[in-house]
């Protein structure tokens, strides 16, 4: 998709692949047959630039035809470069960072007011946590005891122009979420077992929102992309594309 579209953000798509896979395979109560079910779980991709991975899992789960993926970014296509609500299964549009968590808090609060059982999940990028609005919402979520709300941070440690620790360090990151009143668990964001282990026991603490810090590697799965800033923006084409596909196709779980 990204290669055909000559688009960016492949690194941040690969870093969250396991996260969305576990969410949609095992955790979220969402069905393509009942898109507007009032008690569906709400998933908000706040890092909207990672739409390729999001669209891929939605297509795999049957929210829209697989061949829509071929139109990603393209003139007249169905899929814009950032997550867009007009696409079946996309709960809210995103793309400007720091918007997802406040909306998630509103949805979680509505569930509490109306005594509905649904849960709300927001997937954030690490660089996004430099936005003040994230912490405005984090503070309010704890104040309202929204234990039906879970944040997952894709902590790949690289943002657009460099490493987070060199640009505006998030550390001590878990302590920040803790201090804001959240219960935090840190997992290997590429371990399906660890992700499932955390996301299947929510909330971590009754009457507190939950935060999963998923330690990930930008560009995970392709050796020459892993942990490389270049792949925030670079598009794999030609030999790079072939090499990347060859590596990805040899991954063991794809051949099961």
């Amino acid at each position: 998709m990204i290669s055909r579209a000559r688009s960016s953000h492949i690194g941040g798509n690969f870093s969250m692949a396991e996260i969305v896979a576990v969410l949609y395979d095992e955790i979220l109560n969402i069905s393509p047959k009942h898109l507007d079910a009032p008690d569906r779980d709400r998933f908000i991709l706040s890092k909207g630039h990672a739409a390729a991975a999001y669209y891929s899992i939605l297509a795999l789960k049957g929210f829209f035809p697989m061949d829509w993926l071929d139109t990603f970014y393209l003139n007249g296509g169905h899929l814009a470069g950032h997550a867009t609500r007009s696409v079946p299964g996309v709960e809210v549009s995103s793309g400007s960072l720091g918007h997802g968590l406040p909306m998630a808090v509103g949805m979680a609060k509505a569930a509490k007011i109306d005594q509905r059982p649904y849960r709300v999940f927001a997937l954030l990028s690490d660089g996004e946590c430099q936005e003040g609005s994230v912490w405005e919402a984090a503070m309010l979520a704890a104040h309202h005891r929204l234990d039906n709300l879970t944040v997952i941070v894709d902590y790949n440690k690289i943002q657009a122009l460099g490493q987070t620790r060199e640009i505006c360090d998030l550390e001590p990151f878990a302590e920040k979420w803790n201090a804001f009143g959240w219960t935090v668990r840190q997992v290997d964001g590429h371990s399906v077992d660890e992700l499932y282990g955390a996301l299947s026991v929510l909330p971590f603490t009754s009457e507190k929102p939950s935060c999963v810090i998923a330690h990930t590697v930008k560009g995970k799965g392709v050796s020459f992309m892993e942990d490389k800033l270049l792949w925030h923006y670079r598009t794999p084409v030609g030999e790079e594309f072939d090499a990347a596909m060859s590596e990805l196709c040899s991954l063991p779980h794809l051949n099961r």
């Binding site: 709960e91 809210v92 720091g98 918007h99 968590l101 406040p102 909306m103 998630a104 808090v105 509103g106 949805m107 979680a108 609060k109 509505a110 003040g132 609005s133 405005e136 919402a137 309010l140």
Partner: peptide, 12 residues
Amino acid sequence: QNMAGVATGLAL
């Protein structure tokens, strides 16, 4: 900012 975002979440 949070007020407008939370309001949208509630409205949705």
